[in-house]
């Protein structure tokens, strides 16, 4: 198992995702003799997991079963332990494309936070790229290093513990892209420019507040960045439902109803389908928006550094 290369069989030391059902899952570190409790009973790693294929159904002790999934950065993002607020895959997608990340890209990031974005970046820039990630919080930085090693991507990432606004990224003229997710990104714009390759590169800053964006844009302009754009991406998820709507009783006779041609034919069909319903209904499939959705995560400001 590694976050950058698929494997088929579950092995000792792997991080696997236990999928229990609708949006309900958690990560598990596979160990000989290890046990994991689920609501369906216990999973014994040595017999239930090791040697099995990813994507298999695993029967737990109480007879219930779960699926064991291969860990992807997207699944990791949904399951990681939060040490900070994290970036989700919707924003990560746009960041990755707009920063033009691809295999071989050298990327600077700050802060590392819970390393949600870091995993996605590493996945994209492997096997020849590198991530320099800066986190001024000692404990978070150490935890991130531990995770990268566990996920077998340690060779693609360097974690540094320092204040990016004061000390920068610790590298000069090497990066193709810089990502900032810090409270005062405008203080790090100069350092970002230094970190980017001499020939240029892309930068992105993520800020929840418009005032932060305002200051960042000014700083970017002062430092000669071009193509400064700010956008916001929102994810709308739809539940797929079969909806039944009653036909109102308009006081018409039965004769009148059956003479409505095509519709009438449909109606009798639906009648047979749902004999319990007192009145005639029409059924259709619909994508129903969730009652609540994430209305704002942050503004994403992108810009380009040119040679001059």
């Amino acid at each position: 198992m590694s976050f950058i290369e698929y494997g088929d069989t579950i092995k000792e030391g792997d991080t696997a995702i236990v999928f229990l059902g609708h949006e309900s899952m958690f990560p598990v570190k596979v160990q000989h003799g290890g046990k994991t409790q689920t609501k369906y009973g216990v999973i014994r790693h040595s017999t239930d997991l090791i040697g099995k294929k990813y994507g298999s159904k695993v029967t737990c002790s109480k007879g219930g079963w779960v699926y064991i999934l291969y860990p992807t950065p997207e699944l990791w993002t949904l399951n990681l332990r939060h040490r900070t607020q994290i970036l989700y895959s919707t924003d990560i997608s746009l960041i990755t494309m707009m920063l033009e990340l691809k295999p071989g890209s050298i990327v600077c990031e700050s802060g590392t936070g819970s390393a949600s974005l870091s995993h996605a970046i590493i996945r994209t820039i492997a096997p020849t790229g590198h991530l320099y990630t800066i986190e001024f919080h000692q404990q978070r930085a150490e935890k991130a290093i531990e995770e990268f090693e566990e996920h077998k991507v340690g060779h693609l990432v360097t974690v540094k513990t320092q204040d990016v606004c004061k000390n920068g990224f610790g590298v000069t003229n090497v990066a193709d892209a810089v990502f900032l997710d810090i409270p005062s990104p405008w203080e790090a714009v100069g350092h970002a420019k230094l970190a980017l390759k001499h020939e240029g590169g892309r930068i992105c800053s993520f800020s929840p507040c418009i005032e932060q964006v305002q200051r960042t844009c000014l700083a970017l302009e002062e430092h000669g960045f071009t193509e400064i754009t700010t956008s916001e991406i929102l994810l709308r998820v739809y539940n797929v439902r079969t909806i039944s709507l009653q036909i109102p009783d308009l006081g018409k006779t039965a004769d009148g109803n059956s003479s409505t041609g095509v519709d009438g034919g449909n109606l009798s069909n639906e009648d047979a389908l749902c004999p319990n319903l007192p009145q005639e209904t029409i059924q259709f499939k619909s994508g129903v928006p969730l009652k609540e959705m994430v209305g704002h995560t942050g503004y994403l400001t992108f810009a380009t550094k040119n040679l001059f």
Binding site: E232, I233, L234, Y238
Partner: peptide, 14 residues
């Protein structure tokens, strides 16, 4: 884990 979704993109003048 089937998911039907759509994204909205809003650009800003800053």
């Amino acid at each position: 884990n089937l998911k039907l979704s759509e994204t909205w993109l809003r650009n800003y003048q800053i």
